[in-house]
């Protein structure tokens, strides 16, 4: 009689482990193992011909890629920061409006925000390339009306890359912001107004502080992928604004230098981790997951 009960006890104790097993295995096989392989590869020396790598503990590769591609790291940083800032500025009013004035149609508006993103990332970017090309719809028309000088061009500039990044990562900013705003109890704001707060003060002293964690989550979710992005730069950028993601891609696919590419990726990862660490320190126990 006691046997089934004790088995049940075991089952209960094992349940959380068994339940987390699929996710744990997934994480291990598809995240930890490849990540480890990349970190190991960054210290190896690889043959471009055979692709075979030999462990050489080539620590020097890490500082050397940083010094070699410092400019590209900085470009990536500036572009990602500019795009993130643009996204925050653009998506805050959108998220605010949907959260407080969306009414019953909130889900519809959120869907509208996401609809363009049902199309593949690369295709969207290539379409922008056509739209913005010198003889494309926009520039050609404006030039015909003499609203722009003939030599004016958008493609190949840093502006085009930042705009592309901002466009492509907009939902990553808008959604966490929306979640943070949506959680605000409107009655708090009403209480503030009852206490003679102006609309400005209500926004600055009630809404903004309550959305700060959302802003930071949005910041990280936008900044980190934008920092390593290469598609926008490859398609919309020119010669003077190569981002580090492009270099990584070239190291792998043009130079066939897997070790060099892995070293660059490791450095990129380290920089991103520092960002997350600072986030955790600044915002205490509130975590990104809360806003996902």
């Amino acid at each position: 009689m006691t046997e089934p009960r004790s088995r049940g006890g075991w089952g209960k104790r094992l349940a959380p482990y068994l339940l987390s097993l699929p996710a744990g295995l997934w994480l291990l096989l598809l995240f930890i193992v490849p990540l480890g392989a990349m970190l190991v590869m960054s210290l190896e020396t690889c043959s471009p011909a055979t692709g075979a790598c030999v462990m050489t503990w080539h620590w020097g590769e890490l500082p050397s890629v940083v010094s070699l591609y410092r400019a590209q790291f900085l470009t990536s940083f500036y572009f990602a920061a500019a795009a993130t800032l643009a996204d925050l500025v653009i998506s805050f009013p959108i998220a605010y409006w949907i959260a407080f004035h969306g009414g019953r149609r909130k889900n519809f508006f959120l869907l509208m925000l996401l609809v363009p993103f049902f199309v593949s990332f690369i295709i969207r970017t290539i379409v922008w390339e056509f739209v913005l090309s010198n003889n494309g719809v926009v520039l050609h028309t404006l030039k015909n009306f003499h609203l722009l000088p003939h030599g004016f061009h958008v493609l190949g500039t840093g502006f085009a890359v930042v705009a592309g990044l901002a466009y492509n990562y907009l939902p990553f900013t808008a959604l966490p912001l929306y979640v943070a705003l949506e959680r605000i109890d409107y009655r708090i704001l009403e209480a503030a107004y009852d206490l003679y707060a102006t609309r400005r003060a209500g926004f600055l002293r009630v809404i903004l502080p309550l959305t700060v964690p959302g802003i930071f989550a949005a910041f990280l979710l936008t900044f980190i992928p934008a920092f390593g992005d290469y598609v926008n730069q490859e398609i919309l950028g020119g010669t003077a604004n190569t981002m580090v993601g492009t270099v990584v891609q070239n190291q792998f696919l043009v130079n066939l230098d897997y070790a060099g590419g892995a070293s660059l990726s490791a450095v990129l990862l380290a920089i991103s981790l520092v960002g997350i660490f600072l986030y955790a320190r600044l915002l205490g126990s509130r975590t990104i997951e809360q806003y996902l």
């Binding site: 056509f130 090309s133 003889n135 494309g136 061009h153 493609l155 020119g238 010669t239």
Partner: peptide, 23 residues
């Protein structure tokens, strides 16, 4: 050539589209 601003971009096979577009 690059620092003089003569080159717009370094292209892969897509150069032909850019030549057609007038980029």
């Amino acid at each position: 050539q690059k620092s003089d601003g003569i080159v717009v971009a370094y292209y892969d096979q897509s150069y032909i589209a850019h030549l057609k577009n007038g980029d």
